[in-house]
Deep mutational scan, measured.
Amino acid sequence: QIFVKTLTGKTITLEVEPSDTIENVKAKIQDKEGIPPDQQRLIFAGKQLEDGRTLSDYNIQKESTLHLVL
Rank of each mutant, 00 (worst) to 15 (best):
I60T: 02
G52Q: 11
D38Y: 12
F44L: 05
G52L: 08
S56A: 13
K28W: 05
L49H: 00
E63V: 03
R53V: 07
E23Q: 13
F3T: 07
L14C: 04
D57C: 04
K47G: 07
E23N: 08
T8S: 13
G52I: 07
N24P: 00
K28H: 05
D20A: 06
P36S: 08
P36W: 06
T6Q: 07
K47Y: 10
G34A: 05
G9Q: 04
D51M: 05
E63T: 07
V4H: 01
V69C: 14
T6P: 04
V16F: 15
P37D: 04
D31R: 12
Q61W: 07
L66Q: 01
E33M: 12
T13E: 08
S19T: 12
F44Q: 03
E23A: 14
D51W: 03
I29M: 03
I60P: 01
K32L: 11
T54R: 12
V4Q: 00
K62V: 14
V16N: 02
L66H: 01
H67F: 13
D31T: 10
G52P: 07
N59W: 05
I22V: 10
S56Y: 10
T8P: 05
E17P: 03
D57E: 10
E17H: 10
A45F: 09
A45G: 14
R41A: 08
P37N: 07
P18K: 06
G34L: 04
Q39C: 14
D57Y: 12
L14W: 01
V69F: 12
K62H: 15
I12A: 02
G46K: 04
L42I: 07
D57M: 05
P36V: 05
L70F: 08
K32E: 07
L14P: 00
T65F: 07
D31A: 14
L42F: 03
T8I: 08
I29F: 03
T21E: 03
T13Y: 08
S64M: 11
K10E: 09
Q48T: 14
Q39Y: 09
I12D: 01
L49E: 00
I35L: 06
T6H: 06
P36I: 05
L7Q: 14
R53M: 15
T21S: 08
Q61G: 12
Q39D: 08
I43C: 15
G52V: 07
K10H: 13
F3E: 04
L42G: 00
K28P: 00
G46F: 04
E50G: 04
L68H: 01
V69W: 09
Q30R: 14
G9W: 03
K28M: 15
K62C: 15
P18S: 10
K26W: 03
Q30I: 03
D38S: 13
T11G: 03
V69K: 08
T54M: 10
Q1P: 10
P36F: 06
K26V: 02
K47Q: 15
E17F: 10
L49Y: 00
E63A: 09
T65M: 10
D51A: 07
V16Y: 14
A27H: 14
N59G: 14
L70C: 13
D31H: 14
L70T: 12
G52R: 09
K62N: 15
P36Y: 05
T8N: 12
Q39E: 09
I12N: 01
I43R: 06
T13W: 08
G46M: 04
Q40N: 03
N59V: 04
R41N: 11
R53D: 05
N59F: 08
S56G: 11
Q30T: 10
A27N: 11
E63W: 09
E15G: 07
T21L: 11
K47W: 07
L70W: 10
F3W: 06
P18M: 14
P37T: 14
I2R: 01
N59C: 11
K47V: 15
L7E: 15
V25T: 03
V25Q: 00
I60F: 03
K5S: 09
D38H: 15
E23V: 08
D57L: 02
S19F: 11
D20N: 08
N24D: 13
I29D: 00
V4A: 03
A45Y: 09
L49N: 00
E15V: 11
S56W: 08
G52W: 11
D31I: 12
P18F: 15
D57P: 00
L70Q: 09
E15C: 15
G46W: 04
P37Q: 12
T11A: 05
I22C: 03
V69H: 12
K5P: 01
E15R: 06
Y58A: 03
T11S: 07
V16T: 06
K10F: 09
K10M: 10
L55V: 08
T21A: 05
G34E: 04
I2D: 01
L68T: 02
L70P: 10
Q30E: 10
E50M: 10
T13D: 04
I60L: 04
F3A: 04
G46E: 06
S19P: 03
G46R: 04
Q48A: 11
L42E: 00
G34T: 03
T11H: 06
E17C: 13
K5D: 05
L14R: 00
I29Y: 02
I22E: 00
E15F: 14
E17N: 12
T13V: 13
R41E: 11
G52A: 12
T54Q: 06
K62P: 15
V4C: 04
G46V: 02
G52F: 13
I43H: 12
D38C: 15
T65K: 05
T6L: 15
I12S: 02
L68E: 01
K5F: 06
L68K: 00
K62Q: 15
P18C: 12
L7I: 12
E33Q: 07
R53Y: 14
K62F: 15
P36T: 06
E63Y: 11
V25P: 00
Y58Q: 04
Q48Y: 13
D31C: 14
S19D: 12
G34M: 05
L49A: 02
R53K: 14
K47R: 10
V25L: 11
T65C: 09
I43A: 05
S64H: 07
V25H: 00
T8H: 14
I2K: 01
Q1G: 05
K47T: 13
H67M: 12
Q40P: 02
G52K: 13
A27L: 13
T65V: 13
G9S: 04
L68N: 01
R41L: 12
S64V: 07
L66C: 01
K32D: 03
K32R: 09
A27S: 12
T54A: 06
E33C: 15
K32H: 09
V69D: 07
E50F: 06
H67P: 01
T11W: 08
E50W: 05
L70V: 14
F44N: 03
E17W: 10
L14S: 01
Q1C: 14
K26Q: 02
G34W: 03
Q1V: 15
L42D: 00
I43K: 06
E33F: 11
I35W: 12
I35Q: 03
N59S: 08
G34H: 07
G9E: 04
F44W: 08
S56C: 08
L14M: 05
L66E: 01
K5L: 14
V4S: 00
F44I: 04
L68D: 00
Q39T: 08
E17Q: 11
S56I: 10
R41Q: 14
S19Y: 12
E23F: 14
K28R: 08
E17D: 13
N59H: 09
T11Y: 10
T8Q: 11
D51S: 08
L55Y: 01
I60G: 01
D20V: 04
I35R: 02
A27K: 15
K32F: 07
L68A: 02
D38G: 12
